[in-house]
Every structure is written in structure tokens, then in C-alpha cells.
Design a protein around this nucleic acid. Sequence first.
DNA 1: ACGACGCGTGCACAGGTGTCGACCCGTGGT
DNA 2: ACCACGGGTCGACACCTGTGCACGCGTCGT
Lengths: 116, 116
Amino acid sequence: MEANENLAFDALSDRVRRRILAALGEEGELSASEIAARIDSVGRTSVSSHLRVLRTSGVVVERRSGRNRFYSLDLDGTVRDAFVYLQSILREATTSIDTTDAPERHDADRGDRGVG
Amino acid sequence: MEANENLAFDALSDRVRRRILAALGEEGELSASEIAARIDSVGRTSVSSHLRVLRTSGVVVERRSGRNRFYSLDLDGTVRDAFVYLQSILREATTSIDTTDAPERHDADRGDRGVG
DNA sequence: ACGACGCGTGCACAGGTGTCGACCCGTGGT
DNA sequence: ACCACGGGTCGACACCTGTGCACGCGTCGT
């Protein structure tokens, strides 16, 4: 255990970075300033820092063209790792509860959840 | 967007919480002290705090039995939400690069990655 | 070559959060 | 009833991290 998926979870645990990811998912590729323009809640500096995190954690890739830097999702990056990781623990847990006395359930006392 | 999957990402962005999740995945169900015993890097208080996060974020569920509290993965919780979320952005990005001038690529300059 | 522009970075600061020790509540045993 | 034990919670503290500002470096236009 302890592979690359943790990098993705750490990267995706931030609100701004998730918005960047969403924008990249829609457009496919965006320059740093274009991304910063979309995220109006924070400044350009902060976005740049987030892009660094996303890059070093293997979530996005950078393509330089002139004085622009275009970012896009890394399909073979840690996002995929995180995906298969979740898939595994979901499957693992399914087999576990099958061999355990855990009672079946569908809802719990999670406090303030909901789509918001 | 901005649904429940972010709760899972936030929960899974922590090292200790991932270890708890792994233990739960293996055993299916564990009491709080059993979990604390497995995570020897931190104390019981800290584990309890993490369990609270995992509970309130809809990752695990609690079952009380006597003076014990048994925890197990919530299969219908936010972990599943995060799973489908990653699935969607992965698919979304795939269609995007198909309709964009993004050049194909398979590796990048991610700094210090590797299985660790 | 010089200025405008894109954009990453170092620094300082503030808010978030993990950790621990002490405490409290509830349950089970005797 | 009393005590031992499981385990969550509060307060305090240290650290991590997100944010903005000023700045530096490289690139394009003239």
C-alpha cells in the first residue's frame, strides 16, 4: 500500500484544485491565466501554487507554448491511481462484509451531509 | 458539482485516515481501540478524532455494542461518491482531448513520483 | 534592444488541523 | 454501589498550507 493514489487525494482535498480540475475536464486544456480567470475567488498567485501541486502530484500535465503554459488532465496520472484504489477498497470491503457479522444498512447518522 | 465526493477526498487526504481505511478494508469491522492499536504512530485521542472525521464525512459507519464502538466502511457513503466522481472526470477528459488540439502524451516531468 | 506580458517563486502572514494530555460519560463486572 | 475500562471531547500547542505582494525570468512585439 501507500502508492501514488494518496497524492491524488491530497491534491483533490482542496476546493480550488477541484475547481481547476473541473474546468480542465470541461475544456480539456487551459492556460494558467485562463484558469485563474475562472477561479475568481482567489488570485493568480494562489492558482499558480495549486497548479504546481497538481503538477507535482501527477494530476495534470503542463505544455509550454511560447510564454503560455497550458494545463490538461493527466489521464495516466494519479487520478487514475486513486480511481483504481477506491475501486479496490470498495470491492475489498464488499467481500469483507460478506464474511463478517456486520449487519446490512443503507443510511446513518452522518450529521450535516447533503448536496448542499 | 460540489457534492459529497469532496468530503471523501478531504477525509482520504490524511495518512492516518487512509491507514484506518485500509485496516477496515482488511478486517471489515474493528473497534476503536483495535484501530488505535494498529496505528502505532499516533495516540488513541488522535485516532478518535480521525474516526469522527471519517464518520461525519460519510466514509465509515459506527455500530455500538456495549462499551465498544465498531467501525466499518460505508459502502453507500461518500467513498462511492468519490469513485463515480473520478470516473466522470476521467471520462469527461477523455472526450475532451478527443475534440481538442491537445497533443497525445503518456508521461511528463512529475518530479519525485514513484511507488515510494 | 527595450518594453509589455505570461507566469512561476520567495517571503510573510493567517487560518486550518493533527496531536496529546486531562477529563467526562456510559457500560460491564463483582 | 463501586470500580475498571472503552472511548469521545475539550483545551492548548505546533505545524502545515493557502493567500497575496513583490519580484524575477523568459518570450513576443516593435
